[in-house]
Design a protein around this nucleic acid. Structure first.
Lengths: 344, 344
DNA sequence: GTTAGCACTCTATTTTGTCGAGTGCTAACC
DNA sequence: GGTTAGCACTCGACAAAATAGAGTGCTAAC
């Protein structure tokens, strides 16, 4: 038995209906649908076949059918049409991303918010991974007694800073001197190799400052790897609107998992190897997300992939819409990060 | 009719029991309690009196009684004992706050996390308000073409930074010169008055840089006022463990309100005028929090109040425990911010 | 002032009954 | 052979009825 055109049509109709209604679809409701001139009995036969093929499931004997993960996979791979964004949706996104933003973290927050507002699902956004960036500039700025701020700027134009201790008696001229020296030495060095490189090259006049330099490297290392704390989350409670999560315990499990961030972080990190990815239901490794789908996209600065972001929703997700939004966002985000950070 | 010692004792017992069980307390369960050698009938009479006085409520005719907001108010004002923290709890807090933290925002996140972990309620933490701080240092650091990072350091030792545009042809020496000049001019000026002060004093050689200076002031103004986005939230989903929120709709309302941040921000801002505050149920202005209690504390740096943080839970809250935790945290936080930011 | 006893109230839970949506199968139809 | 009408059957959802149990208020006795 094969999937002929009619079976495909019926399957698509069932999926589309189910995405909207969230309740099992019966044969009659399909046969009444525009474009089907078949009786419910015929649909029933086809549905029985589709069930045997593993595309449909029956919650119980006398209910309608619901699509299986396998069906959604087929759907996103072959049947789905991308939904283009409405004027309003674009406006919402623009309004969110257009605000004056002068910090990477703020951009991430806004992105997450815009995503969850437009899609009504849960949005997750990961800060840029700076490891593959190259150093452009290091500046040490004196703070109060015994402390300084290390500011690092990367080739992609990101800046990060951290407070460090400085040795007794080191004045601002000395700090300036060291800043220049470090900038010169390590300019264009990959951020994640500054430590190694420093160990190798640390002869000469920097020798006596070994401990101090180490603390700078440590601070840098801590900053280049975005941690799970740096995952922005927005609209987690949107999940509560879906009948799938009307059970408090399910909701609790889901919310606790996303609030914990670390799962999400792992997930986004893995996803950052691909331009786009869609994982459906059981394709998710995490037990918690077995009845969710996760769609992610990766943003870039220049040619370098910097991080990913995405949407978590029920498997019954509006894939077409979500993918369009992510594509749009991917472009906006890459643009903002490449050029316009701090523009009006 | 007055509240004699016996009535007080019974009321306290009811509150204590109710805080643990979350279900209406009957007369018999009180009379069986250690320390009461009264029959349930007597307790019943007393409970009827307490109800008449407004301290108890009856969900329906034949249920036990539950404490009213008025009862909780009396409880926290007069009857409650502070619970001292257990070894384990202190360990949890130390573990969270002890990690190397070199950024204000990281400290706030950790604080929120520690609070929610230890109390099992929802923790809210607001970043320091820098408005009352005085400027100690301004540094402009050149970034890529046409952009610089403004780093400001305040008297309390906080640093903030923002990316700004710089005029064509302004080189790093010029930036350094302006940094010194600004630092000198506005050192010890209140952060929220730098703008005004600059308008007044901006004669002389800074005149031709008017637009540029304005953009610096704007950046500073944006940074000194913590926004609602800067409220850290942790353990929001803890609320779902409480039977009070087993109704999905209630949970949804609550979570949406706290996820929105802005209510929380207003609330913490108001609370920062007091050392501690407890608002119970209907004392909260916000409809959403009518059956929550909110306990807040204000942290300081030196003598200056900087911001507040707190706990949101059901009115049936373990007040004694929560207050102790907040007191402990208040001290830790003030210490960390005063001295040890970036210490191991 | 305290307490035992009892009738009463009200909720929560279980049980039972009913309805309707949907199915699978069969037989007839084109 | 594919399609369809018809029908008996299944099963969950929902409502009504029955039951159990906790707790109260009141009264009368201690």
């Amino acid at each position: 038995m094969e999937l002929d055109a009619r079976k495909l049509g019926i399957l698509k109709a069932i999926i589309d209906e189910y995405i909207l209604s969230a309740s099992p679809i019966g044969s009659r409701s399909i046969s009444k649908l525009e474009g089907f001139s078949l009786s419910s009995a015929t649909i029933r036969n086809e549905m029985a076949d589709l069930e045997e093929l593993g595309y449909l499931e029956q919650p119980h004997t006398s209910a309608g059918r619901i699509p299986s993960d396998k069906a959604y996979r087929l759907y996103v791979d072959q049947m789905m049409q991308k939904a283009s964004l409405s004027e309003d949706e674009i406006k919402i996104i623009r309004a969110h991303m257009g605000a004056k933003i002068d910090e990477v973290e703020a951009v991430m927050k806004q992105t997450a918010q815009a995503l969850s507002l437009v899609t009504h699902y849960t949005a997750i956004v990961m800060s840029p991974m700076l490891a593959a960036n190259r150093l452009r500039h290091i500046q040490l700025v004196p703070l109060r007694e015994g402390r300084a701020l290390v500011v690092i700027v990367t080739s992609a134009g990101f800046s990060q800073d951290a407070v460090i201790r400085i040795p007794e008696g080191m004045d601002s001229y000395e700090l300036e001197r060291i800043s220049r020296m470090l900038t010169e030495h390590f300019c264009d060095c990959r951020m994640d190799q500054i430590g190694d490189s420093m160990l190798r090259e640390m002869g000469g006049e920097l020798k006596e400052r070994k401990a101090f330099l180490n603390s700078i490297v440590e601070a840098i290392d801590r900053k280049i790897e975005p941690e799970s704390q740096n995952v922005q989350l927005s609209g987690a409670t949107n999940m509560l609107h879906f009948p799938e999560y009307s059970d408090v315990n399910k909701a609790k499990t889901f919310l606790a998992a996303v609030e914990g961030r670390s799962m999400i972080y792992d997930l986004l990190k893995r996803a950052s190897k691909l331009e786009f990815s869609i994982t459906i239901g059981n394709e998710n490794e995490d037990e918690t997300f077995k009845d969710c789908s996760i769609v992610t996209a990766t943003y870039r600065v220049g040619d370098e992939p910097m991080g990913s972001f995405g949407i978590i929703g029920p498997t019954r997700m509006q894939y077409g819409k979500v993918i369009s939004v992510l594509e749009f966002m991917r472009r906006s985000l890459s643009d903002i990060l490449s050029n316009d950070l701090d523009d009006d």
